[in-house]
């Protein structure tokens, strides 16, 4: 019996091959088979025959929008920095697979002029939630998982001396479990069936748990959570929002953040990284997934998402033609945090 993901995979291969063969696009950003159980390797198919390698599974955890600006640039005909940029519609187009959050990141990239809408073909896939490899591994402490078979609702885990079936949803990543927009918001080529919006009563449950702690406990949580950071910047580089040519951590005059591993330096790095994603983050969970030390840095961006939604009623990347939450304002934005001393100044709010 073919699973939903296998069907989607077949459709991806057919569509990708067709677009490449017809010359509608010159590259397709998708996923290939990984070398380990529960992995999938992002790949760029540039020839129709490459498309046989494309797959779809529950382990496509990295946000493919991350590759889009660079791949778009790589297929442009070479031109010097001072040459006039050729018009967008004359440049080759690139197709990219996109689930709900990835498509919202593409929308953000369009809003921020990193990606030209006319050059992207979004192959929209409704997401059924991606599985956290770490969650599965934690169910089998001290044992190695050698093979995983994926069903629609179950995962069959094979080790050297055991075989167990586990419920798929129970090991889906936290961000996917609390996701409210699993279906792409931008679709040029539909792959598979649309999935319905999830009725989610508590998208910010984990954030609220931390908010309920006292100030000192929150500080203790923050310093412990980020203490293992090794500053490899996997979270930054895997993020589709991070495309600055020079990152603030690489600046040395002024040096915004120190380079060492003490709590202040790692803490500042993570705070500023998260803050730079304010109003832009779609909670795709890639940062958390790729961290080799298992740091839960998504809590910071999730907190910002919560505030952006509560204060301004906005979610990142839902409409390509609307401005981003932090590049716009209203005259009566809440300002409870403002220090006012004179009685006459107690306005707003």
């Amino acid at each position: 019996m073919t699973t939903v993901n296998e069907k989607i995979g077949e459709e991806i291969r057919v569509q990708a091959r067709k677009m490449l063969a017809e010359g509608a696009v010159v590259a397709v950003i998708g996923y290939g088979v990984g070398s380990l159980p529960m992995t999938a390797r992002p790949m760029v198919a540039r020839r129709p025959e490459d498309c046989d390698k494309l797959i779809w599974s529950s382990f496509c955890v990295l946000n493919l929008a991350n590759y889009l600006p660079e791949v778009l640039k790589s297929v442009e005909p070479p031109h010097g920095p001072r040459d006039p940029k050729p018009p967008e519609d004359s440049l080759p187009r690139v197709a990219v697979l996109a689930t709900g959050c990835w498509s919202r990141n593409i929308v953000v990239q369009i809003q921020e002029h990193q990606v030209a809408r006319t050059r992207v073909v979004v192959m929209g896939v409704g997401s059924r939630g991606m599985v956290s490899r770490r969650k599965v591994e934690s169910l089998f402490p001290g044992k190695e998982i050698l093979r995983v078979e994926e069903g629609d609702h179950d995962l069959v885990i094979h080790g050297a001396d055991f075989t167990e079936t586990i419920n798929r949803w129970s090991v889906v990543r936290d961000n996917c479990q609390t996701c409210t927009h699993p279906d792409p918001v931008l679709v040029d080529v539909r792959i598979g069936d649309p999935v319905s919006e999830r009725k989610n009563p508590k998208p910010f449950k984990q954030v609220e748990e931390i908010e309920r702690l006292s100030v000192d406990d929150r500080w203790a949580w923050f310093t412990t959570e980020f203490s293992t950071c090794i500053r490899c910047y996997a979270c930054r580089n895997a993020c589709p929002l991070c495309y600055c040519p020079t990152c603030f951590v690489d600046d040395d005059k002024p040096q915004w953040v120190g380079k060492s591993l003490d709590t202040v330096d790692t803490g500042l790095f993570h705070l500023l990284r998260a803050y730079h994603c304010a109003g832009r983050c779609t909670d795709c969970g890639t940062c958390e997934t790729v961290c080799p030390m298992g740091i839960n840095m998504r809590m910071l961006t999730k907190k910002l998402n919560k505030d952006v939604l509560n204060l301004y009623g906005l979610e990142a990347g839902m409409q390509p033609d609307a401005p981003l939450p932090l590049t716009t304002y209203t005259l009566d934005d809440p300002q409870k945090f403002i220090v006012t001393e004179a009685p006459s100044a107690k306005e707003g709010e």
Partner: peptide, 19 residues
């Protein structure tokens, strides 16, 4: 106005991590 939005988010974030 832009600053107001940014400061609102920043002061909440700092509060969130225990500053």
């Amino acid at each position: 106005y832009f600053a107001r939005r940014r400061f609102a988010l920043l002061s909440n974030l700092l509060d969130f991590v225990g500053i």
